[in-house]
Amino acid sequence: MRNVGIIMRRELASYFATPLAYVFLLIFLVLASAFTFYMGGFYERGQADLDAFFGFQPWLYLFLIPALSMRLWAEERNSGSIELLMTQPVLLWDAVLGKFLAAWAFTALALALTFPLWLTVNYLGKPDNGAILAAYLGSALLAGGFLSIGSCMSALTRNQVIAFILGVVACFAFLLAGFPLVLDVFRGWAPLSLVDAVASLSFLTHFESIAKGVIDVRDLLYFAMLIGFFLLATTIALDMRKADQ
């Protein structure tokens, strides 16, 4: 576990050693505010809550998270530094987990920096702060799910643009798994149980139930298993392809 911490710290430091961290934070905060105030109608709703903010969160993540995760492994393979890392006395799993946790901690920081919105609603009225906290937790879990998928896509290729596109498509499929756009692909040929299983994988349904303030163990378990599954898939993909040119 000590190696996980060492690798996570190095990774986080490298975000801030390049403009990446600042550009990402700035764009995330600007877009989150723009969605909340203009498209979400924050004032017009006349309610002291952050639904307008959290409602757009999945769509913001859909493009920003793959942009963050695309470099996780594709860059290591492209620059060859993966050979340096994998010949140190560390387990592959330590590296996968360390890099994922660094990216997750970074998105958690971005999310935490939206605190002025929370101050605003508390100034304007009396919101249900428990529900807001739950929604923040749901949003962080959603970001973790997206990041784990993005990590796996990044492990499949050494090209960051391909990793980004694969990441967006895979996240989009998981986001809308409960909607006709995705379900119609399965309807007609797959048994009903499979269609239901696909529908139950939807990010949106699990996120929205947490965002309403209901923390259900099943929703937490869903995100935990999803993240675990994709990190394991990342490890397997790297083990098979790490030395490929």
């Binding site: 190696n3 060492i6 190095r10 430091a13 490298s14 050693a17 390049t18 620059s79 060859g80 530094s81 050979e83 340096l84 010949t87 140190q88 006395p89 560390v90």
Partner: peptide, 22 residues
């Protein structure tokens, strides 16, 4: 390794410290 790959965005001190930690 061939070509001596390193983490280019790190400082020399930071990089050697990272390896020393591992």
């Amino acid at each position: 390794p061939e070509g001596a790959p390193v983490y280019g965005e790190m400082t020399v001190a930071g990089f050697l410290g990272f390896i020393a930690d591992l």
